[in-house]
């Protein structure tokens, strides 16, 4: 089992590859790996309750910790209460902690 952290910056509404990135993250989690997904930049856009992008729900998995970057949310005036309940907010120190603990950290 490995531990992965994905920095998910791509916006699925404009970048079709994002869907397959979600699928891969889902497959890694289903195979028993622990995965953290940090939504940053426009990558936070599908994280709101009002957003409709069905493939994003693949990230709602027991082996996946899903968090959104506070700064990116502030820029877009998205409050924590507007997020899907499973999604917590974070600073980027989560990425550094993952790197320093030897996780495989991947920028998407």
């Amino acid at each position: 089992m490995s531990e992965f952290l994905f920095i998910q910056s791509r916006d699925p509404f404009t970048d079709a590859l994002t869907k397959s990135q979600y699928e891969l993250i889902h497959h890694l989690a289903t195979a028993g790996n622990r995965v953290t997904v940090v939504l940053v930049q426009n990558g936070v856009m599908p994280a709101t309750k009002s957003s409709i992008f069905t493939p994003f729900t693949k990230l709602l998995h027991e082996n996946i910790t899903l968090v959104a970057d506070k700064f990116s949310l502030q820029q877009r005036e998205i409050d924590a209460e507007q997020l899907i309940p499973e999604i917590l907010t974070t600073d980027l120190d989560i990425v550094i902690k993952a790197l320093l603990s030897g996780q495989k950290v991947i920028w998407n």
Binding site: S2, F4, S20, L24, H27, L28, N33, K104, I106, W107
Partner: peptide
């Protein structure tokens, strides 16, 4: 295929995208 990416990702020490 996309499911076979799982072992490919697991066997690598680092992944540079």
């Amino acid at each position: 295929n996309r499911e076979q990416l799982v072992p490919l990702f697991e066997q690598a020490d680092q992944i540079w995208h």
